[in-house]
Nucleic acid binder design. Structure first.
Lengths: 199, 199
DNA sequence: GTCTATAAAGCGATAGAC
DNA sequence: GTCTATCGCTTTATAGAC
């Protein structure tokens, strides 16, 4: 069966998986070639910029997925609590409860962080901003929402580190449950004015 | 000036810094040679097992440092609160408020995790166990202490990821402050018996 | 668009002089 | 104990046939 119709988007998932499993430096062209079933010539046809362009495309793809399935649903029409629950469920599923690593997080800790600085920065700041906005919608003050959102994203990333380190997804699950409980617990009353709603 | 007296322990810090900055795969023998000022011959004299033995020695050194300066002080004679505060201060100083990365955490996320599995696992489980014991001493139930300890270590690791990703140490500082507040807030009363002290 | 062949550089590791 | 020279292999990247 002719599979001569390969497009960039067809091989991106396998590319992403290779970078996830081996990191940037560990993902050699040999491994990539084996994972995609394409020779080096074909790879350079799709990505003239070589390995760096491949990784950049993978990061863009991942960020796009999160934007669509995690960030944007946070500002859906549903109640804030429903949005938060949906986000946590998507995250848990995406990372396979700690069985999969976050490529952006791993890149952030490695020495290629600078090379992909804008992608890495944008991914995390967009996530925090989206969650923070939802928390404001749920009644938190801006400051409380920002702190809670930051704590949540850090908690998720830390739980991924811990799950890999201890080789135990249950620790990831426990952290996700704690985060859910904290995110859904009622906002503290603001000191001076009660929750007044303007029109 | 003759500096022919090099010992393994003399070059371990520079070795550690190289692995911290570049990761396992990124830390080439060329970089290591430049960082230590030693030729490959000398490096293989101290580490016949090559790069893998160097990394293993670095991980042992780091774990030993944490054992001495972080884990053991947690069970010092001081009050639990003082121990917790001391731990957080040591951690903040060691990681330069998020400016430095955790080698063990970075290894955990990378594909060399399996090769150094026991070191990585021991480091994190020892840390959690030590903190958990202190929290029990402060009046938490075993289950609460374990959860809070796990949450704390994950929070620290996540804060390191986030600080590197956002290139902003303030996010690390904020997380450390939140963790301190949570660790020092009074233990919930256990449902059935109040805090009774035996002898 | 896909392949093989190949170039040029860097890699980890070894041998042997001093 | 330190060095240089070198081996064998892998790396990224390119060239060119099909």
């Amino acid at each position: 069966m002719a599979r001569t119709v390969a497009e960039r988007s067809d091989i991106l998932p396998m590319l992403a998986e290779t970078f996830r499993l081996h990191g940037y430096e560990g993902a050699s062209l040999g491994l990539i070639s084996a994972a995609t079933g394409l020779g080096k010539g074909s790879l350079y046809h799709f990505f003239p910029g070589g390995k760096e362009e491949m990784a950049a495309a993978v990061l863009d793809e991942i960020e796009g997925w999160f934007r669509q399935h995690v960030f944007e649903p946070l500002s859906a029409g549903d109640s804030g609590a429903a949005c938060v629950r949906a986000m946590l469920a998507s995250v848990d599923q995406y990372f396979e409860s700690g069985g999969r690593v976050c490529v952006l997080g791993a890149f952030a800790l490695s020495d290629v962080r600078d090379r992909f600085a804008t992608s890495v920065h944008r991914y995390f700041s967009a996530w925090i901003a989206a969650l923070s906005a939802t928390l404001v919608r749920m009644g938190h003050s801006k400051a409380d929402a920002a702190a809670l959102a930051e704590e949540t994203i850090a908690g998720i990333q830390g739980a991924l580190v811990l799950a890999r380190a201890l080789q135990d997804r249950r620790s990831f699950k426990r952290t996700m449950n704690r985060l859910e409980q904290r995110l859904l617990s009622p906002a503290k009353h603001e000191p001076r004015r009660r929750a007044t709603r303007r029109t």
